[in-house]
Measured scan of single mutants.
Amino acid sequence: MAEQVALSRTQVCGILREELFQGDAFHQSDTHIFIIMGASGDLAKKKIYPTIWWLFRDGLLPENTFIVGYARSRLTVADIRKQSEPFFKATPEEKLKLEDFFARNSYVAGQYDDAASYQRLNSHMNALHLGSQANRLFYLALPPTVYEAVTKNIHESCMSQIGWNRIIVEKPFGRDLQSSDRLSNHISSLFREDQIYRIDHYLGKEMVQNLMVLRFANRIFGPIWNRDNIACVILTFKEPFGTEGRGGYFDEFGIIRDVMQNHLLQMLCLVAMEKPASTNSDDVRDEKVKVLKCISEVQANNVVLGQYVGNPDGEGEATKGYLDDPTVPRGSTTATFAAVVLYVENERWDGVPFILRCGKALNERKAEVRLQFHDVAGDIFHQQCKRNELVIRVQPNEAVYTKMMTKKPGMFFNPEESELDLTYGNRYKNVKLPDAYERLILDVFCGSQMHFVRSDELREAWRIFTPLLHQIELEKPKPIPYIYGSRGPTEADELMKRVGFQYEGTYKWVNP
């Protein structure tokens, strides 16, 4: 592979701008107003304001973009700056750019259920340069409990009458099928589907988006991507930290609602779906819905739930269990780990287990898709061969690698495990991989909904998990304890083995 010439960040961002501006969906010269509902909250200060700053800094926003914060707290732009700027990672050389960014910011205080507050917000936006005809993007960085009041008031008082209007809704989209349907029906009564952007930030990850290209742009994968060759698929999300004093919020939802029903299920769809007619948003989402419709409700015998306990040999936070978090209700049975087996009941995947695993306070930070292939028929190497695996590593250190057998150097035919490896950090030294939120917010500006969740996708996802969630809430089974920093409950490994996964433990990928 030829040595790549190092590029400056300015040059890299210039390439990104060229890609972005050559499309006809990006209205570079139009006025846009980006409204952050819930501007005083954690999500706004840690993710949304920093993301908008990065896009502005790199010249990736339309030229005439204004940012308006809205929340109940009586704040000023200076207050917003004070709480969000520490997350910007701005350099001293960017000081003038930073001043320009905050000059485009404003803030309006108001209630979430008060019509007069929204009329005041609308008047404020109209007073901005060309504000009355601007395109408006409303980001709901809010708890779902206020979605209905907020969307109703936005629709009645704050819509642009000339430009387009788009609304970005953060997960969780309800707690179960019934609450999700209620919320979807409410929002759909106010906005068209092409105006609604239900954001799952995992769909903005580079390697998640790469799944489609790997599958449908490489001839070698087509013939082997089926039940005849693939023994099982494992989708993993692991965090090495616990709730760390923020367990009160987590306890309301648990690990299945927080990660599995959305992030992991979306990745499953991209692995299992048929080739779409095109890369058009609805063509892709149509195929994802077909996959979900082929999955039956989760069966309790295919589920393992766990909850982390303190590690007596650990240090600091590792010595504390979930129930030691003062914000967690006493005696909570909320799971911090889950392993679930699903089956896609169609011709391509009949009988292939899709194993979804996620948890907190585990032994490493990792998100990946792992396809394990069947054993080689007619073994001539005296059971020395391990199964081939194709691994798409989402985070950290984005990579695609194939675990395969090669001859060990020497005189004899002794096979050993090795890999074919594409590590993004080595291959793409001159490429700026956008943060997931950067990519998705740019998608909203461009009107691309491919990486957002459609209402029928959402409904099918909740259909699969709601009976299990209701059973857990009714019966309150005690989750299996696992030690902070471990791989999780051993019962999860036993479940995976029972459905056909072979864990060798003899080879570990190392970032080159």
Rank of each mutant, 00 (worst) to 15 (best):
Leu20Glu: 12
Arg182Ala: 14
Asn126Ala: 12
Trp53Arg: 02
Glu93Met: 10
Arg219Ala: 11
Phe173Cys: 06
Arg215Phe: 00
Gly247Lys: 05
Gln22Leu: 15
Gly174Trp: 01
Gln209Leu: 04
Gln178Phe: 12
Pro143Tyr: 05
Gly222Cys: 12
Pro172Asn: 01
Ser40His: 00
Val169Trp: 03
Leu211Tyr: 04
Trp164Leu: 10
Ala116Trp: 12
Tyr112Met: 02
Gln28Met: 10
Gly131Val: 09
His27Ser: 11
Asp194Phe: 07
Pro143Glu: 04
Leu98Pro: 01
Thr31His: 06
Arg215Ser: 01
Ile168Tyr: 01
Thr76Leu: 08
Ala141Val: 00
Asn210Asp: 10
Ala115Met: 14
Arg136Asp: 00
Ser8Asn: 14
Arg9Tyr: 15
Gln11Asp: 15
Val12Gln: 15
Lys97Trp: 03
Gln161Met: 14
Asp79Gly: 09
Gly38Asn: 02
Ser8Trp: 04
Ser157Arg: 12
Asn165Cys: 14
Arg72Lys: 04
Ser157Pro: 01
Glu93Ala: 13
Tyr139Glu: 06
Gly110Val: 02
Phe138Cys: 06
Pro50Thr: 07
Arg192Ala: 12
Glu63His: 14
Tyr107Asn: 03
Lys47His: 08
Asp251Tyr: 02
Gly23Val: 14
Val150Leu: 08
Ser132Phe: 11
Leu121Val: 09
Lys47Asn: 04
Gly204Trp: 02
Gly174Ile: 03
Phe102Glu: 03
Glu244Ala: 13
Gly245Gln: 08
Asp42Glu: 00
Ser188Arg: 09
Leu130Glu: 15
Lys46Ala: 01
Thr65Trp: 07
Ile196Val: 14
Ala217Ile: 01
Phe173Gly: 00
Glu99Asn: 14
Ser132Ala: 14
Lys238Tyr: 00
Lys152Arg: 15
Gly23Pro: 11
Arg219Thr: 09
Gly131Thr: 11
Glu148Lys: 10
Val213Ser: 10
Glu85Ser: 09
Ala6Thr: 15
Pro92Ile: 12
Ser8Val: 07
Phe101Glu: 04
Asp24Val: 11
Asn64Thr: 08
Ile52Val: 14
Asp113Thr: 10
Ser180Asn: 10
Ile48Leu: 05
Phe138Pro: 01
Ser160Ile: 10
His32Tyr: 15
Asp228Pro: 05
Gly254Phe: 02
His186Arg: 13
Gly204Gln: 01
Glu99Thr: 09
Asp181Tyr: 06
Leu121Met: 10
His32Ile: 08
Arg74Lys: 15
Pro143Ser: 07
Arg72Leu: 00
Val150Asn: 10
Val68Asp: 00
Gln119Arg: 15
Leu61Met: 07
Ala6Arg: 15
Ala115Ile: 15
Pro144Cys: 00
Ala44Ile: 01
Tyr202Phe: 07
Phe88Pro: 00
Ile162Ser: 11
Ser184Gly: 07
Phe191Met: 09
Ser123Met: 14
Phe26His: 14
Met37Lys: 02
Glu94Phe: 05
Asp200Phe: 02
Asn210Met: 03
Asn105Gly: 02
Tyr107Gly: 00
Ile48His: 03
Ala78Pro: 12
Asp176Glu: 06
Thr31Phe: 09
Leu128Arg: 11
Phe88Glu: 02
Ser106Phe: 13
Gly110Pro: 04
Leu121Cys: 07
Phe250Gly: 01
Phe221Cys: 09
Asp113Phe: 13
Arg166Leu: 01
Gln161Cys: 13
Ala25Asp: 13
Leu7Trp: 05
Asp176Ile: 04
His201Phe: 04
Pro240Phe: 09
Gln133Pro: 09
Thr243Val: 11
Ala134Arg: 13
Asn185Pro: 02
Ser184Arg: 02
Asp79Pro: 01
Arg57Gln: 05
Ser132Asn: 13
Gln195Asn: 08
Gln22Lys: 14
Lys171Val: 04
Phe56Ala: 00
Glu94Cys: 09
Pro144Thr: 00
Arg227Tyr: 09
Glu252Ala: 10
Glu18Val: 06
Leu128Ala: 07
Leu43Asn: 00
Phe237Asn: 01
Ile234Arg: 12
Phe191Gln: 03
Phe241Lys: 03
Lys45Ile: 07
Met159Ser: 14
Ser84His: 09
Thr236Ile: 05
Phe87His: 13
Pro50Arg: 11
Phe21Gly: 08
